[in-house]
Structure formats: structure tokens, C-alpha cells
Simulated scan of single mutants.
Amino acid sequence: MEGFTCTRCGEVHEDIPMCFGAEYPDYYFSVPPDERQLRIEHTGDFCVVDEEHFFIRARIEIPVVDSDELFCWNVWTSLSETNFLRANEKLNDPERVNEPAYFGWLQTAIPGYTNTLNIKTLVHTQVVGIIPRVEIIEENHPLIAEQQQGITWQRVIELAETALHG
């Protein structure tokens, strides 16, 4: 599908953005800005707060109905220290695709959904160089239904408008 006229800003967007994301886990913002350099270790894919809260960047993929397209959210999930260390250990290992999924709690507020913080997830490692995939497992959350059943192009536009303009 090509472009849309945004109901929020009135502009014609030639392309529909299909991926949005968060640079940091939500928990990152609970640390005062003047303390972050001392208390947080952050790379593009991993984040540790106070050496006791462990997060990994991953992707929620939502199929678009009657299409081969995926709408994506780049998000952060918490991991246990054991799974966090394992994910780091396997970062460049081609065999990491054989790892069992890691349980985590979603740590990204996703626009267009009721509360997404701390919903249950499974993090599936992918081939080296590909961001892990998140499977939502929180019962009765709208995000799990959309991930399993897909969304329409109209819903894609609605989510894009919300992500772009709040």
C-alpha cells in the first residue's frame, strides 16, 4: 500500500512507516538524568541498570492482513540475569537460533495500545545479525490478538499516526 493523508497533521505521507521503536527501556527513565552515566550501561541492543535490571532490544512483528508486510515495534524486554548473560554469550554464535525462548516483561510503552508495560513476553533469538523476535504471551491483551491474527492497513495507518503524532 502506498502513502496516506494523515488525519493528525493533514499532510500526505508518500510512504507508510512500518517500524517504530524505543531507544531505551522504559525503566531507563526511572533513573535521574544526572545519575544515568554512573548507573546505566547501554549499548544499542542491551541495557543494564544498577547491575540488577537487565534488558534486551527485540522486535514485535505484526502481520498485515492480505499482505506479505509486517508492522514492527522495536521494543525492550527485561530478562533474568541468567538469560541476559546467555543472550550476550550467544550474540555472535550461529547456533543461537537453537536457544529456547527467554521469558521477559515488556519494557516499552507502545503508542496505540492500553498499557503495554510489564506484559508477558517470550524473546526468540534469530540468526546472527537479526534482532530477536518478541512473542506476546499476556492473555487478553489487544497486542497478542493483533500479533496472532494480523491487522488491516487501516490499523497500520492508525498506529503510524499515533506513533508519529501522539
Rank of each mutant, 00 (worst) to 15 (best):
A160K: 03
R57Q: 09
K90Q: 12
Y28V: 03
F20S: 08
Q147A: 11
A22C: 05
V48A: 07
D15N: 07
W153G: 09
I40R: 05
E95W: 01
T108W: 01
H13Y: 04
F71E: 03
K120F: 12
W105P: 03
Y113G: 02
V156K: 00
L122G: 10
L143M: 15
V48S: 04
P32R: 03
V128A: 09
G129D: 08
I40M: 05
N140R: 15
E51R: 07
T77M: 06
L143A: 03
F29A: 08
N88L: 01
V64R: 03
T114V: 05
R96I: 04
F4T: 06
T82A: 03
Q154T: 09
S80G: 12
I144H: 02
Q126E: 10
T125G: 08
A145C: 11
I131F: 06
G112H: 02
F54G: 00
F54S: 02
C9L: 06
F103H: 07
D68M: 07
E95V: 00
S78T: 05
P132I: 13
E161A: 12
E11M: 13
L70Y: 01
E69I: 13
R86V: 03
P100G: 04
V12N: 14
E52M: 01
I119F: 10
Y113Q: 01
I16R: 05
Q107H: 15
G166P: 04
T108K: 06
I130Q: 15
E51F: 08
G44K: 12
V127K: 12
T114R: 15
L106H: 03
E146I: 00
E138Y: 03
L164S: 07
E139F: 10
N140S: 15
R39G: 04
D68A: 12
E69Y: 14
L143E: 09
A87S: 14
P100E: 14
L91K: 14
H165T: 11
F29W: 12
I16L: 07
E41P: 07
A58M: 02
L70H: 01
T5V: 15
L122N: 10
E61Y: 13
E158R: 14
F29G: 11
E146M: 06
P63V: 03
E95T: 04
D34F: 13
E158A: 15
N118M: 01
G21D: 04
N74R: 10
V134S: 00
Q147I: 11
L79K: 02
F54T: 01
A101C: 10
V65P: 05
Y28A: 00
P32D: 09
E23D: 15
E138N: 11
V123I: 15
E138M: 08
P63C: 09
N118S: 10
G10I: 12
Y102H: 00
E2Y: 13
C6V: 13
D34C: 05
E41A: 14
D15Q: 06
C72I: 07
G150L: 01
L159I: 09
I60G: 09
L85S: 14
R59E: 14
T77R: 03
P63F: 09
E146H: 10
S80Y: 06
A101E: 09
N88W: 00
G44M: 11
I110D: 13
R59S: 14
T121H: 03
L38G: 08
A22S: 11
H53K: 14
P17W: 14
R59A: 15
N140G: 11
E89K: 12
T43Q: 06
C9S: 02
F29H: 06
D68S: 07
L159T: 04
C47R: 02
N74K: 04
V31D: 00
L164R: 12
H13R: 02
G150E: 01
